[in-house]
Design a protein around this nucleic acid. Structure first.
Length: 845
RNA sequence: GCGAGAAUGGCGGAACUGGCAGACGCGCUGGAUUUAGGAUCCAGUGGGCAACCGUGGGGGUUCGACUCCCCCUUCUCGCACCA
């Protein structure tokens, strides 16, 4: 297909060139308007068609769209438009995760109201998304700060409350006295408040919790039923849930009727327990030392620990530390009297807050025992050799045979686990127990800009849920939020002072708001029927649309948002809302956008402003580059020159169509010719191969970068076509190629494809086309290149008819001069032939 | 420390179940066009004069290894005293 360049316009002046030039601003404005006017992307349920629900994680309206959003939403839009072309009824909605702290901070800083700040941001960012031409059904747009939205989750809250899935509990939180508020862990910097730099204290506060631990088992189990999720997300979730199976055993306290309940997964080492450790916060810690000489030192230790924030205390590098309580307990297995310590590394909120310590077989206990000179008893011996306690430099953690373990001595430690658990249960010493690392979800926030928790606190009746008829509890918008850090809600009389729904007496409304992760745990369901006032969602609508077929978002939500959404889905199921088990069938976690080796961030000053890019190159180029530079799951290295390359590629397609418009619009070009020249056949083959490659790349892995590069290759070929020959079939082949390119690329660069589609004479939107099908007959090559290797090195390449027999290939190969040169005078020891691929010849050296 | 992922030209990245390493793009070089520049088009572009050598390093399996196995190094991410 080589030839002279096809584009030799002999009388094209500057004016003409100007008209033919790719002008994204005009094209994009034109088509965005058309799409909107024709309501092209608005969808409704249609049982006669197969549905496809594509969802990208909705943004927090922080002010402006950033490149991470552009990437996320471009990926989603390709999938959505691709599925439309395949004939699916595609739901592709967008909305706003609109509650949250930045709004309050901004309000204080700019003397505005969080609501106003949020609304302004939403308006601005909606404009940016529209400018990018995404195929959203904007009639389904929602904002979580609307009472119409959050009233449904308030109702769900009360239902969960009645089901026992919501409860109130004292818990330790980071508290800043000057700011009068709870701080999230990430707002504590080196033990100081991020806002006022005062020391953060631990405070026990009443907080509302969702009982996600009730679902720990199911959430874990279903990790193995989500084949469409990335393995690493599932692993992270499994680790986060952290199921461990062990036993709880009571250790009686000596000279007392108290006992200490410990949890262990290593009951096989119980004969080696030489002390017991309590968390400093354990209720027995102070009780056991009361009146003893150790009381003062224990008190000092416990107080010091209470000031240390959890991050520091649980740091791996942090040295093991503890004090003796003065009390002893009895190991129920061997009746040894062993000391009770309190230790910094024992956590109150895991297991029972107390452990049996086996220094010989637990590294932490080993370090502690060495430090405080506590005996070390070896109870597991390795298969070969003997361990001497005195010579140990670290705990022995591997398998072995029990030693000094009463009736269990001599059996393998792995076999002893169930046997000892049985013994514990049969002798009333305790029971088998499963523990989780997962904690219940604390949702109380002492903040203003959130959904009010629908509870009324009555002195007589306790916490009473707000009756359905009184929902929603509307967040009062006339609040004064100028006081730094302090929620104004408790001070708003009309809000805070209410009558108890149960007894009618004076009561106080709960002034805490919900964690914003609550809103994002069910928004995907609300999109199915976003305007429905009477309920969270319409059952028929969710029956049709749910689950989300493809969810796309950043890996940073691998645990929190995705776990909470899974939890909510199951709760909704158990409350009879629907029968969905899992919200997201397939999950794609896209990589970060990187520049100069690090994540783009304002503080590093390496951000790229999408608006500026769109201004300069247009939306299609901006989208194309984010899809071309890397496969979606990988980090994307930003490169300004690369963006120009994407622009150039679009311009090349545009020019190809525009400068040959007359030629490829002629009846001869449209009508399939009876006979094709060799060149036309080659072009047809290249076209069909491209269709196959693009389809496969999207279907198999969403590897858009390679799909785009395949189209680039085809475009490069088209530039080499000689159109000045008498061959008319080549014009047909060119038109067909371009027509297919336009459809194939329309999910990526929809505006320019619509424009060129129209120029080619089609009078409907390119989205109404069908995804091209390739003809397998046109994709196969009748000649193949066979590589000839001699002793593993490529020595020749033969072009031979497809499916040639080994004999034929051998004869041709052996006759080749290049091959002869390397086998001359040597003995052929072996030949391996792989049909249509290669012939490998092994000769003596 | 544990878990997951990664390492390929000057750069971003390709390579299906082991079978032509470096597709495509960026950059660079040369040429055409142009008064010039830009834009555009064409050609070239891993290293080496060559034999050859090249996918982080070292072993192995194989006719054949970026791909499979063992050991090691570095980087990224997640978890991190969870008993």
């Amino acid at each position: 297909m080589a030839g002279c360049p096809l584009l030799i316009p002999y009388v094209i002046g500057d004016e003409m060139t100007e008209l033919l030039k790719y002008n994204p601003a005009a094209i994009e404005a034109k088509w965005q308007k058309k799409w909107e006017e024709s309501k092209l992307f608005n969808v409704t349920e249609d049982d006669s068609r197969k549905k496809y629900y594509v969802l990208e994680m909705f943004p927090y309206p922080s002010g402006r769209i950033h490149m991470g959003h552009v990437r996320n939403y471009s990926i989603g839009d390709v999938i959505a438009r691709y599925k439309v072309l395949q004939g699916f009824n595609v739901l592709h909605p967008m909305g706003w995760d609109a509650f949250g702290m930045p709004a309050e901070n901004a309000a204080i800083a700019h003397k505005t109201h969080p609501a106003k700040w949020t609304r302004n941001n939403i308006d601005y960012m909606r404009g940016e998304l529209k400018r990018l031409g995404f195929s959203y059904d904007w009639t389904r747009e929602l904002a979580t700060c609307d009472a119409d939205y959050y009233k449904h989750e308030q109702q769900l809250f009360t239902k969960m409350f009645k089901r026992g899935l919501v409860y109130k509990k004292q818990s330790f939180v980071n508290w800043c006295e000057p700011c009068q508020t709870v701080l999230a862990n990430e707002q504590v910097e080196d033990g100081l408040c991020w806002r006022c730099s005062n020391e953060v204290a631990k405070k026990e506060l009443e907080q509302w919790f969702f009982k996600i631990t009730d679902y720990a088992d199911e959430l874990l189990e279903f990790c193995d039923k989500l084949p469409g999720w990335p393995e690493r997300v599932l692993t992270m979730q499994k680790n986060w849930i952290g199921r461990s199976i062990g036993v709880e055993v009571d250790f009686p306290v000596a000279d007392s009727d108290l006992s200490i309940k410990i949890f262990t997964t290593r009951q096989d080492t119980i004969f080696g327990a030489t002390f017991v450790s309590l968390a400093p916060e354990h209720p027995l810690t102070m009780k056991l030392c009361a009146g003893k000489e150790e009381e003062a030192s224990v008190r000092e230790f416990v107080e010091r620990m209470s000031k240390e924030d959890k991050a520091t205390r649980t740091e791996d590098a942090n040295e093991k530390e503890g004090v003796f309580t003065g009390a002893y307990c009895v190991n129920p297995f061997n009746n040894n009297k062993i000391p009770i310590y309190t230790a910094n590394f024992v956590l109150m909120d895991y297991g029972t807050g107390a452990i049996m310590a086996v220094p010989a077989h637990d590294q932490r206990d080993f370090e502690f025992a060495k430090k405080y000179d506590i005996p070390i008893n070896v109870v597991i011996q390795p298969p070969e050799g003997n361990i001497e306690a005195a010579e140990m430099t670290e705990a022995y953690l591997k398998e072995g045979v029990l030693h000094n373990s009463g009736e269990f001595t001599g059996i393998k430690n792995s076999d002893a686990l169930p046997k000892i658990a049985d013994y514990v249960e049969n002798n009333g010493l305790g029971k088998r127990q499963v523990n989780y690392r997962l904690r219940d979800w604390g949702i109380s926030r002492q903040r203003y800009w959130g959904s009010p928790i629908p509870i009324i606190n009555c002195d007589k009746c306790g916490a009473v849920p707000v009756p359905d008829s009184d929902l929603p509890v509307v967040l009062p918008l006339d609040a004064n939020i100028e006081t730094v850090g302090k929620s104004p809600l408790p001070d708003i009389e009309e809000f805070a002072n209410v009558k108890c729904p149960k007894c009618g007496g004076d009561a106080k409304r709960e002034a805490d708001t919900m964690d914003t992760f609550v809103e994002s745990s069910w928004y995907f369901a609300r999109y199915c029927s976003p305007q429905l006032a009477s309920n969270m969602f319409d059952e028929d609508a969710t029956r049709y649309w749910m689950s989300v077929d493809q969810y796309i978002g950043g890996i940073e939500h691998a645990i929190l948002h995705l776990l909470y959404s899974r939890f909510f889905t199951k709760v909704l199921r158990d409350l009879g809302y629907w029968d969905v088990d899992e919200p997201f069938k397939n999950l794609l976690t896209q990589g970060m956008v990187i520049k100069d080796g690090t994540k783009m961030s304002k503080s590093k000053g390496n951000t790229v402003d999408p608006s500026a890019l769109i201004e300069k190159y247009g939306a299609d180029t901006t989208r194309l580059f984010t899809l071309f530079a890397a496969p979606p799951e990988r980090d994307l290295d930003w490169n300004d020159k690369g963006v120009e390359g994407s622009f150039r590629f679009i311009s090349r397609i545009h020019r190809l169509v525009m400068e040959n418009l007359e030629l490829i619009s002629s009846p001869a070009a449209i009508q399939t010719p009876d006979e094709l020249s060799d060149e036309a056949k080659a072009l047809r083959k290249a076209t069909h191969k491209t269709i196959k490659k693009v389809s496969d790349d999207i279907n198999d892995s969403f590897h858009f970068n390679t799909a785009i590069s395949a189209v680039m290759e085809l475009v490069n070929k088209l530039y080499l076509v000689n159109l000045n020959s008498d061959d008319s079939s080549i014009r047909w082949a060119l038109r067909t190629a371009l027509d297919n390119i336009i459809v194939l690329m329309s999910p990526f660069i929809p505006h320019v494809c619509e424009e060129l589609h129209e120029k080619l004479g089609h009078d409907t939107s390119v989205t109404k086309r069908q995804w091209p099908k390739y003809d397998p007959a046109f994709v196969v090559d009748d000649e193949v290149t066979i590589v000839v290797q001699i002793n593993g090195k490529v020595r020749d390449k033969l072009i031979i008819a497809k499916d040639s027999s080994e004999d034929v290939v051998r004869n041709i190969a052996l006759a080749s001069e290049k091959v002869q040169k390397h086998i001359d005078g040597k003995e052929i020891k072996k030949m391996v032939y792989i049909t249509n691929r290669l012939l490998s010849i092994v000769v003596t050296k």
